[in-house]
């Protein structure tokens, strides 16, 4: 559906060149929700803008639905953009137009006749749940409602791909969830391919099928969301995963427990899918002569399934602890010993 081959984007600055995107290869499948996560300045914003030709790559090739976006220009590019629409962090609605007029705007651009625009706009307003607000101006709407208008506007010309540029970053958590639900719903109902960029792992966890992690212009890690959550490889990925699995309080509590219990062994267990339901812990405690202190436990829901993580402090003699860790390994539980500083 979408294919990026060796995509590079450099910006010329007064004091040299900045490589915003550095030799990125990606393939995004039809109908999937693909997330790109990174901190600001990682190049994800530039990357997503190359999917609809708002930015041209310095090198490499971008193909969307068979159309080489990195090459086309003029009328062909404008035509192609109608099928690759975009929503934005700050919504970017025209304040001079009402909700209905904003949604009609892309239809006007596409040359749809007025008589045909009206029923289509009504249908879109119903789809995003804004009935009754047709004649309101954006200044009279809440952030979540504005993004709904943005989504309706993006869907007006029946696109194949929806690009989301930090679409929930300006919204509060509750509104974020309702917008993410709407995106999931649209993805399923219209079989729309969605590419989103974000710096919030929560967004990835909630709706994405696959994720790519970007750092300094490069994709450093990529895979199914569940897989990445269960065993993040890169330090930056671990940081992102800990956004949703660890709160700062717990980190502090662990630090305190480490200093209070100098002789324990801290381990982190990762459970995936059905494993979360199995009584491994009970068997661990029964089978070995050690004390087990649970410092933290949580279960998270991702699009692909459930995963959980537990942090334990094992106390007892060294051999018993080693055997216990060995037991966990043999049970197929992902076990990581947390190093002491």
């Amino acid at each position: 559906m979408i294919k990026l081959e060796q995509i590079t984007k450099q910006f010329r600055l007064s004091n040299g060149t900045l490589t915003a995107v550095d030799a990125v290869d990606l393939e995004i499948r039809e109908g999937e929700i693909f997330g790109i996560i990174g901190y600001s300045g990682a190049g994800k914003s530039t990357l997503i803008r190359m999917l609809n030709g708002l930015e041209k790559p310095t090198g490499g090739r971008v193909t969307v639905n068979g159309m080489e976006m990195s090459k086309v220009s003029g009328a062909d590019l404008r035509k192609a953009r109608q099928k690759v629409s975009m929503i934005f962090q700050h919504f970017n609605l025209l304040w001079s137009r009402t909700v209905a007029e904003n949604i009609a705007f892309p239809l006007e651009i596409a040359g749809v006749k007025k008589a045909d625009r009206e029923p289509r706009v009504r249908e879109l307003i119903r789809l995003v749940g804004l009935e009754g607000r047709e004649d309101a101006y954006p200044s009279e709407l809440s952030g979540g409602q504005k993004q709904r208008v943005g989504i309706a506007r993006a869907l007006a010309n029946e696109p194949d791909v929806l690009l989301c540029d930090e679409a929930t970053s300006a919204l509060d958590p509750e509104t974020t969830d309702s917008i993410l639900d709407l995106l999931t719903d649209i993805n399923k109902r219209l079989n729309l391919t969605i590419v989103l960029i974000t710096h919030e792992m929560h967004v990835i966890r909630k709706i994405c099928h696959r994720v790519a992690v970007m750092e300094a212009g490069r994709v450093v890690e990529m895979g199914d969301v569940l897989q990445v959550f269960r065993s993040p490889q890169q330090p930056i990925t671990k940081r992102f995963v800990s956004q949703v699995t660890e709160s700062p309080d717990v980190k502090q509590a662990i630090g305190q427990l480490v200093s209070e219990n100098p002789d324990g062994t801290l381990i982190r267990l990762g459970f995936v899918g059905e494993r979360t339901g199995e009584p491994v812990l009970a068997r661990l405690i029964r089978s070995f002569d050690i004390d087990v202190n649970i410092l933290q436990a949580n279960v998270s829901q991702t699009h692909g399934g459930t995963f959980g993580s537990i942090i334990l402090n094992l106390m007892g003699d060294e051999a018993a602890v080693a055997q216990a860790v060995e037991f966990l390994h043999s049970e197929g539980v992902e076990t990581e010993v947390i190093e002491r500083d």
Binding site: L54, Q82, M86, N92, L93, R153
Partner: peptide
């Protein structure tokens, strides 16, 4: 807003 209009073609 200008970018949004461009993105719509």
């Amino acid at each position: 807003v200008i970018e949004a209009a461009r993105s719509m073609g």
